[in-house]
Design a protein around this nucleic acid. Structure first.
Lengths: 116, 116
DNA sequence: TTATCATATGAACAATTGTTCATATGTAAT
DNA sequence: ATTACATATGAACAATTGTTCATATGATAA
């Protein structure tokens, strides 16, 4: 009840205590938000969706999505850092694919929400 | 193979065709990205997590998270627009709660990815 | 009515982000 | 070696976003 950070006062201490205990620690919540941030861009969602169909090279992805090779490469970097995609090199061509089974199921859950 | 949008050429037409057919239309992908964008902020994730434990008033949320009432109110607006939370009024106090079963499962999937 | 409390909203500002452009790196073929 | 092609990277810029501050709205009690 002391030091309310907002202009109002703590009203329901029991509920607040219970919720405070259930809340994961700051770092984990940050990581979680960062993960969803990666899904929260239409270019990256498109890339992930495409890769859920087939592994694919940078060039094909760029042509399918209609953005520059550079833009796609930058985004693949983000996806790689989030451990959502992996890649393999074959000569000059680099093939990307999903690195994780969760990717598809997260997208699927999201679509279910969209479709009411 | 015509009109490559990037500097390189379409290499794998069969795969590209297959993926193009599987890809949902532009608007749906936009909505999907917008949905995840809402999850992609630590303040909003915290709010959603708290509400998965209990319905809660704006004031309690603000105090638990340690941000101003205004900041929380702005974010609740975003969550409301995304149909992720609903509210009920009781006198001067407004209680928010999750509007959708998917919210918890999306968060759960995300956490599973985080935990490797 | 007036005062008070909980919440909502608008403007403003700093910080973050996604793209393009130019260029670098890496690989293979000539 | 040199050329060509696929991909990666850095700088720059416009656009978006999250917070604060100030203020408005809505509800209850005095």
């Amino acid at each position: 009840m002391d030091n309310p950070t907002c202009s109002c006062f703590l009203l329901h201490e029991d509920i607040v205590e219970k919720a405070k205990k259930a809340l994961p620690d700051e770092n984990k919540l940050m990581d979680l938000a960062d993960l969803f941030k990666v899904f929260g861009d239409s270019t990256r969602i498109k890339i992930l969706y495409l890769l859920s169909v087939n592994e694919m090279c940078v060039c094909d992805i760029a042509n399918l999505i209609g953005l520059s090779q550079s833009a796609i490469s930058h985004q693949l970097r983000v996806l790689k850092q989030a451990k959502l995609v992996k890649y393999r090199r074959e000569g000059k061509v680099v093939f990307y694919s999903l690195d994780d089974d969760h990717v598809s199921s997260i997208i699927k859950q999201g679509l279910e929400h969209i479709n009411e």
